[in-house]
């Protein structure tokens, strides 16, 4: 890449990078929080609620993210929801992620050994405490790989936000490419950049996994 281009467009690219990270982190946080709540609500034995949540997950997973984003950003005003592009982008990413996160959490919830929960019940522990101190840590162990995978996927989905004019990295790149015709290098640079980002997320994930399973790591851990 021409060094003049970097000087000229560097600041914009850096800002774009910041926005990308912001959208990704906020989107992941919203997606996980929402996904967790959805998982908990799905445990309630009320049929209409179950259908509703199931439909939500099916629709979100069954439609392209770009279309969801258009609906939220362009269709939103029709129902009085007027969102600024970045806000819409973050919210969209969160909603999109929530359906997947909810499914990951559901699998994790089902994988919690029943005996551990029974032991807590038999000691008279309240459900909130059991959830926080017994179920959640056990869930973390089994779900971290899937959660990290989903977070890595969401880093790549942030590029879609450029279409609704969120000034994230892809958007700034396109602006630069349009103005300078330096398209091949920029796209190659982009690809490299996202790959590095995903790599960083995966590494972070491996660390998290090692951390949440540290109590299991034992050379002669034959049973368990």
């Amino acid at each position: 890449m021409d060094s003049n281009l970097l000087v000229q467009y560097g600041p914009a690219l850096l800002r774009g990078f910041g926005v990308t990270i912001l959208c990704w982190a906020a989107g992941c946080a919203i997606g996980m929080a929402l996904g967790f709540v959805i998982m908990l609500l799905r445990q309630i034995e009320v049929k209409p609620l179950r259908w509703l949540l199931r439909a939500y997950i099916e629709v979100i997973r069954g439609t392209p993210f770009l279309i969801q984003l258009f609906l939220l950003y362009s269709g939103g005003p029709a129902i009085g929801l007027r969102l600024e592009a970045t806000t819409a982008g973050i919210l969209g990413l969160g909603i999109y992620g929530s359906a997947y996160f909810a499914e990951i959490f559901r699998a994790g919830f089902q994988a919690v050994p029943k005996g551990q929960v029974e032991a807590a019940h038999s000691l008279g522990m309240p459900y909130g405490g059991i959830l926080r101190r017994v179920i959640l840590p056990a869930m973390l162990v089994s779900t971290v790989p899937a959660l990290v995978n989903m977070m890595a996927i969401l880093t790549k989905e942030t590029v879609v936000l450029s279409i609704i004019t969120v000034p994230e990295l892809m958007y700034e790149m396109q602006t630069m490419a349009a103005e300078t015709f330096a398209s091949f290098e920029t796209i190659l640079g982009m690809a490299l950049f996202y790959w590095l980002l995903v790599e960083a997320v995966s590494r972070l994930g491996r660390r998290m996994e090692a951390r949440v399973t540290r109590f299991l790591s034992h050379p002669s851990n034959a049973r368990a």
Binding site: P113, G115, E118, A119, S122, L123, M125, P126, P137, V212
Partner: peptide, 24 residues
Amino acid sequence: NAQLRGLRRNVGMVFQQFNLWPHM
């Protein structure tokens, strides 16, 4: 559930599979 917890406070149970919490 609260009443049941009150009852279980005075009854301890030991399981075949121990059921310790592995992260503690």
